[in-house]
Amino acid sequence: MTATDDAPLLAEEVHAYYARGAEDGRLRSGADRLEFWRTQDVLRRLLPAAPARVLDVGGGSGVHAEWLVADGHHVRLVDPVALHVEQASKLPGVEAVLGDARELDAADGSADVVLLLGPLYHLTECADRVRALAEARRVVRPGGLVVAATINRFAALHDTVNRGWYLDDPGRRPQVDGASTDGRLLVTGDRPTFTTAYFHQPHQVPDEFEAAGLRTTGQYGVEGTVWLMGAVNDWLDDPERRATVLDVLRRTESEPSLLGASGHLLTAGRRS
């Protein structure tokens, strides 16, 4: 499946959101560095020894592909946004192509690892998410690893309260309340909080893995509760404090009572 400017693979508003180009810098600065470093930390413990064949589906501008290549892995990145593919193609060692998570142009069993660190965010129908996971299962080798990122159900509510938007800007509340109720974040009004997305409950993700033929092996809260603490930027700027924060998050990352408090969740599974 291919994409053109006239027929993007994403919903129009989602494509427009990412075509602005802001995603490339989001994980490289500010509090969002916690998401980047924790995703990297969890993946480094889950991935097989290099060199592994990694298919980075929905890999954006290559923010994770870059360090994966530096770690010695062979990385092929697939993304539905032409700008992202252009950006990722400039990274040494990264092969980047346009594509859809639901219809991958890859041979059966051709990857050791398939990462979906974004596609499930914007597939609002369960059938589409299961289709993307089933494609990941198809292209990963038997016994191979699949890791998917999801946004937690109450992330928008927690984030907008933490930033003061929910309290001070009632116009944002219908979007946030809708996502908290049924998981669907819909773009409404002139001050969207994000773009069209689906926010999971933690227990839903293993069900979707199972429906796609994947065996869930673990779930990991990415930011834990730390992302809601006002001093997070100061902690991340100090290497010693940052190391302590990351250590604390490792200790609590799979605690069932805290999984839903994190902004993002990583779910790992394997093809039997």
Rank of each mutant, 00 (worst) to 15 (best):
A31F: 13
D190N: 11
D168H: 14
D247R: 11
S89R: 01
A179M: 03
G62A: 06
T160R: 03
R20H: 14
V97C: 07
N233K: 14
V140R: 04
S254W: 05
W37R: 12
S89N: 03
A82E: 12
D41N: 12
Q204G: 11
A111W: 05
S254L: 08
E253G: 04
S29I: 13
T225N: 07
L246Y: 04
D79L: 00
D168C: 13
L115D: 04
S29W: 10
V113I: 08
S29N: 14
D100P: 04
L186Q: 13
V94A: 02
A127T: 15
W165A: 11
W165R: 11
A3I: 04
R53E: 15
A134F: 08
R241T: 13
E23H: 13
T196H: 10
Q40H: 15
A179T: 05
G260S: 05
S262I: 02
A88S: 02
D190H: 10
E125T: 12
G178R: 05
E13Y: 06
E223I: 06
A82M: 09
A11W: 00
L228R: 08
L43M: 07
T2A: 13
G221S: 13
A127S: 15
D105H: 10
E210P: 02
D169T: 14
T2P: 09
E210T: 14
D79W: 06
F154D: 14
L10S: 00
F209M: 04
F154H: 14
Q201L: 15
L167I: 14
D41I: 04
L120H: 01
T195E: 10
V161S: 01
A127F: 10
L246P: 00
Y17C: 08
V248C: 11
A212K: 00
E210L: 12
R215Q: 14
R270F: 08
G25V: 11
H122V: 05
T39N: 06
L266E: 07
G269N: 00
R44W: 09
T4Y: 07
T244W: 13
L185M: 10
R172L: 13
V176M: 04
Y166L: 08
L47G: 07
V78R: 01
V248G: 08
S180E: 06
L249W: 00
V187T: 12
D41P: 05
L9Y: 00
R76L: 09
L46G: 05
